[in-house]
């Protein structure tokens, strides 16, 4: 083998692995993880171009866009919080049953019996609040930079939908602890929906699955929270990111 004369032990094994067919099939040419990577302009391009990251980033961006004070990373952090919420949410699903007394009991058990259960629940709760905040601030940042102007008009509309979906995701999750705070906050919120002109009672009926909040509402909002709304928001996120790339990346300097 070509690497026969390289150092033995761990580093030799590592070289062997990094030159193997399996390794090279995973990391495409230009990847920093490949053997013999060198920091050249060509390889810097390949790191993005030959990578799934090419869906999110072009090879190069305008210099002003990299400045932290321009975007404050708010859009990226919103997406990151969404991922954190997905991961912690899946963890919570292992210990939660959306039925009437059980939901509350499961939460109590989660905070006392499950390893890291309380931490993960706290992360899910505070992360959700942070995401609402960061999505809102992201919108404000985009407005003050005039980044919604042509050709980015439609992406702003998609962004408004994403803000609405974020609020709905947070609101549907609010009921799930099935405690006094959840029950009555959701009562107040969904009562507002029943004031919709013309078909207010129908909207309310569909939303809470009956004429008033019952354990059935819990199941309904659970499904909305863990399946339906994440599915919808993922589609709009994909469109949102794709349009960012297609509309010319980060908006121009002021």
């Amino acid at each position: 083998m070509a690497n026969g004369n390289k150092g033995g032990g761990m580093s030799g094994l590592l070289d062997h692995v990094r030159e193997s067919q399996v390794w090279n099939s995973i990391f495409r040419p230009g990847s920093p993880f490949r053997a013999g990577y060198s920091d050249s302009p060509r390889n810097r391009s390949y790191v993005i171009m030959n990578n799934v990251l090419y869906h999110l980033h072009p090879v190069k961006v305008k210099r002003h866009g990299v400045r932290l004070s321009y975007t404050l990373c708010l859009g990226g952090l919103s997406f990151f919080l969404f991922i954190v919420l997905t991961i912690t949410g899946i963890f919570l699903m292992f210990y939660y049953r959306p039925t009437s007394p059980q939901a509350y009991l499961d939460l109590q058990a989660l905070t006392t019996d499950v390893a890291f259960g309380n931490l993960v629940r706290n992360m899910h709760r505070w992360g959700a609040h942070l995401m609402v905040l960061s999505v809102f601030l992201h919108m404000a940042r985009v407005f003050y930079h005039g980044a919604y102007k042509p050709p980015r008009e439609f992406n702003w509309v998609v962004g408004v939908l994403l803000l609405l979906l974020t609020l709905l995701l947070s609101f549907t999750g609010y009921l799930l602890p099935w405690d006094q705070l959840a029950l009555w906050a959701v009562t107040v919120g969904s009562t507002m929906a029943s004031y919709t002109p013309v078909f207010g009672s129908q909207v309310s009926f569909v939303l809470i699955g009956g004429v008033q909040i019952t354990p059935d509402t819990l199941l309904r909002w659970y499904v909305l929270h863990v399946l339906f709304l994440p599915f919808i928001i993922t589609i709009f996120l994909a469109v949102h990111f794709w349009r960012v790339r297609k509309d010319g990346g980060i908006s121009g300097p002021l």
């Binding site: 007394p101 509350y104 939460l107 109590q108 905070t111 309380n118 931490l119 629940r121 706290n122 992360m123 899910h124 709760r125 505070w126 609040h129 609402v132 609020l167 947070s170 609101f171 609010y174 602890p177 099935w178 405690d179 006094q180 705070l181 959840a182 029950l183 009555w184 906050a185 009562t187 107040v188 919120g189 507002m192 909040i213």
Partner: peptide
Amino acid sequence: SIFLEAPLLEFANFNEQPNPSKAPWYF
């Protein structure tokens, strides 16, 4: 998340509405 506990009040009770009852903060 280590230092702040997410709230968990008493079990949901349809007959006892807390006063005041408020929506989530963003509403």
